[in-house]
Amino acid sequence: MSTGRALWRRLPPWAVDTGLVALAALDAWINLLGEGTPVMWACAAAGSASLLLRRRFPLAVFLLTLPMALFMDVALAPIAALYTLAASTRDRPLLAGCALLNATAATLLWPLSDAFDGDRTWTLVQFVYTLATAFAPVLFGQLVQARHDVARQLVEVEEAREHERALYTQTVLARERAQLAREMHDVVSHQVSLIAVQAGALQVAAKDPDAREAARTIRTLSANTLDELRHMVTLLRASGGKATELTPQPTLADLQQLIANSGIETTLTGQLPADISTTAQRTIYRTVQEALTNVRKHAPGARADVRLWHDAHHFGVTVTNTAPTRPTVALPSARHGLIGLKERAELLDGTLTAEPTPEGGYRIGLRAPAQPD
């Protein structure tokens, strides 16, 4: 079965569509043989040939196959068109209406005056049976669409996990490098400094020229080693990633670059006082950064609005995003990002709010008191 499925997937779309057209035409020819009128043959030709365009215009192709179901006892062309429509749209009422149309067209007889002359109970039974048959391709098309959504979401989840693993690895390396830098600075550098000091004292106190020269050499080597150690400490601290002790902390001037690099359609409005403290600027920046990260993870395809504001007594920022335009998967989260933002807000004697919006989006707001002059 897996071999057949792989072979089916390797077929180009035009080959599949051409095969469907041929089968639909054969189905219509068998039903019209010996009793078809020119109108019936024209409807059969139009409905069968339209399957070539079913991927681009699924609704129009389905409507073109309805006369075939009305004039003759065919099943392939309407079912193929209905399946394609179900696999390409999420409009459930539209799909239900199309299934009803297909069942009605397949149940009625042409001319319509003869449709109600027979046993109406049998006509009703036939309609229910045909309706169930019409819903089968609809359900299968929706199932295929859901499978594609799940596959895409699994890819997004795997990419998110890879990104988180990379971030965790960087964090661990940064922590180890920072610890090593502290050890080198606090222990090794201190010991080398003592050696240099003792060598300098020996150079001054020694009376033997050879001893003085040896002490001078030791002092020089110790000073050079101390410079090398300080340089190594600087490199270790700077190579721990973006968030290191030596990296300049972000300010409000970096907001535009943050938004530009976020990959989200974002608008920035408003402004904050020019004399806002550096701590407050970092808090505003981290709030916007965390909010845009959450939008990228949990609301794919959404737009965001960043609004800076202030009045006589307070200042803050509000980040609001629209509802996602693509399906999302509920990912496990410990909400450490929001907890960290709340702690930053409390350091400013402010508050942080995070809540969904009535339109299906999300809003994060920071409000802090202005510092007295």
Rank of each mutant, 00 (worst) to 15 (best):
R335C: 04
K342T: 13
T287V: 08
A24D: 07
A330C: 02
V319Y: 05
S193G: 11
L258A: 10
E162T: 10
P332I: 01
A6V: 08
H298P: 08
L7M: 11
A96W: 09
P58L: 09
A77F: 02
L366W: 04
A25C: 02
G361Y: 06
E183F: 07
L95E: 07
D73C: 00
I276L: 15
P358G: 08
N31D: 11
D117N: 08
L59V: 07
Q170S: 12
P356Q: 03
D117A: 13
K242Q: 12
A75T: 07
K297N: 09
N321A: 07
A46M: 08
L51S: 10
N294V: 02
A87G: 12
A69L: 11
L221Q: 14
P300D: 06
L347A: 11
G301F: 05
Q257Y: 04
A205V: 09
R230H: 00
K342C: 02
A106L: 05
L331S: 04
A134K: 08
A49D: 03
A312C: 01
K297E: 11
L173M: 12
L308P: 01
T89V: 14
L76H: 06
G241T: 07
H185L: 09
R216D: 13
T3L: 12
G240Q: 06
H231A: 00
H163K: 11
W29H: 13
W110C: 06
I195R: 02
L352D: 10
D91S: 11
W110I: 01
I195Y: 02
T325C: 09
L101Q: 07
D373P: 09
V233I: 15
L258E: 03
V155L: 11
T89D: 10
A178H: 14
P13R: 08
R230G: 00
R182Q: 13
G365T: 15
L53W: 13
A166W: 01
H314A: 10
R367N: 15
A77K: 01
A253D: 14
V138P: 06
A86Q: 10
A280Q: 07
H336I: 12
S222E: 04
Q281G: 05
T220V: 05
A215I: 08
E265L: 07
R147L: 13
Q256V: 05
Q170N: 15
G270P: 08
V197S: 10
T171L: 11
R212K: 15
L202F: 10
I79G: 11
A45G: 13
T133G: 14
T171G: 12
H298I: 02
G34T: 05
G360N: 03
R165E: 14
V144R: 09
D186F: 00
A132H: 04
A106K: 07
I195P: 03
A15L: 15
G141F: 04
L268I: 05
F116Q: 01
Q145A: 15
R335H: 13
A354L: 05
G365C: 12
R90F: 02
L109P: 00
N224I: 01
A178R: 12
H313V: 10
A75K: 02
P327N: 09
L331R: 12
D186K: 02
T107M: 06
E355L: 06
V128P: 03
E213A: 15
L94D: 03
F116M: 09
T251R: 00
W8I: 03
N102E: 09
D275F: 02
